[in-house]
Design a protein around this nucleic acid. Structure first.
Lengths: 180, 180
DNA sequence: CGCCAACTTGACCGCTCGGTCAAGCCTGTT
DNA sequence: AACAGGCTTGACCGAGCGGTCAAGTTGGCG
């Protein structure tokens, strides 16, 4: 799965053949179909595993505080840290969004992530620390800023994730306007 | 190109064959290769055309004001309006990001968009109306929020673009914190 | 009308794909 | 030693791909 991830990320899903994967590993094709039903199933397995892994990373990072605003900030930081270490998986997620049959799995993962964020947003609104906007919009807005900054500044420009995280947190919390 | 766009968006680029495109149009395969050098070239042409079209739409929308902050808001609104009318092109852009040979064209378009936004951000900072953050981060942050909200709320949940635009503008300008 | 060039056709080509399977290997059990 | 079953091999298959091209067809011009 690690090797396939690397090939898919570098070459694209369709251009990477099963033959290429198994020969790169030095095994026969039969062994692939012993462990996976199909190429698609392999891809879905990689996708699910990466979603689980990111989520575990986020959970670990936010455990150190109970404050919802801080949890949001720590969640953003953890996401960018993980993302900077897993550029290849980012690429796969983007591809998955372009083919109907991978969308359900993708959306499930994204809804889980949004749900996680949303819980802290709701808590923050209830305690009067966050503006009373629709929590779902806020949650996805956070995910959007984070994903885009990761794509551009981590994966295209190789900037350190800490700097990107500072910018993301600042924009999410305070917007871009001078005193509101 | 319209028909190909629709097929690529619904089926994915690789699973859609040239044979399928031409037979869907009721023409021979030769006529396709008379007008395009390859399937890839067709795709790049679609991509470029859509980037030009969105940009024209944005330019038209912001022409009515000189205020940089308002221009940013109007640009976001115009983007979401256009995006809600062109769900298929959104899908193609996402796919393009997953294959090396399409990335250069994609990045060129994205840098143009970020450059457009960045000019207004710089002007806003200079006039003291925007916080003094890195304009490049802000520009991509804006693009990120906008693209993500478009994906989730326009294309997955079919919400009206005006509501999504209100949320995006509000988050971009003021963040999520209660008075900062 | 004849002719040329722009355009159109679809059978065809070489190739690679995802997936199958008969055959064989390796290891633990009896 | 015999065997059984988990595991591995790679030649092979039918299908479908992107792209080619010889053979038309069409419409405008002299």
């Amino acid at each position: 799965m690690d090797y396939a991830t690397e090939r898919f990320a570098e070459n694209g899903y369709h251009p990477t053949s099963v033959a290429e994967i198994v020969s790169g590993l030095g095994v026969g094709k039969g062994v692939f179909y012993w462990y996976f039903d199909s190429k698609d199933e392999l891809f879905l397995e990689i996708l699910k595993q990466s979603q689980r892994d990111l989520r575990r990373h986020q959970h670990a990072a936010i455990a150190e505080t109970d404050d919802p605003v801080e949890r949001i900030a720590l969640g953003i930081r953890a996401t960018l840290e993980w993302s900077s270490a897993h550029a290849d998986l980012n690429r796969l997620v983007q591809f998955a969004a372009t083919e109907e049959r991978f969308l359900p799995a993708l959306r499930r993962g994204q809804e889980v992530a949004a749900g996680d964020a949303q819980r802290h947003v709701i808590e923050g609104i209830a305690s009067g620390r966050l503006r009373d906007l629709d929590p779902a919009y806020i949650a996805h807005g956070i995910i959007g800023i984070t994903a885009q900054l990761a794509r551009v500044f981590l994966h295209e420009q190789d900037q350190p994730w800490e700097a990107v995280a500072d910018a993301a947190v600042s924009m999410v919390l305070e917007g871009i306007l001078v005193d509101s």
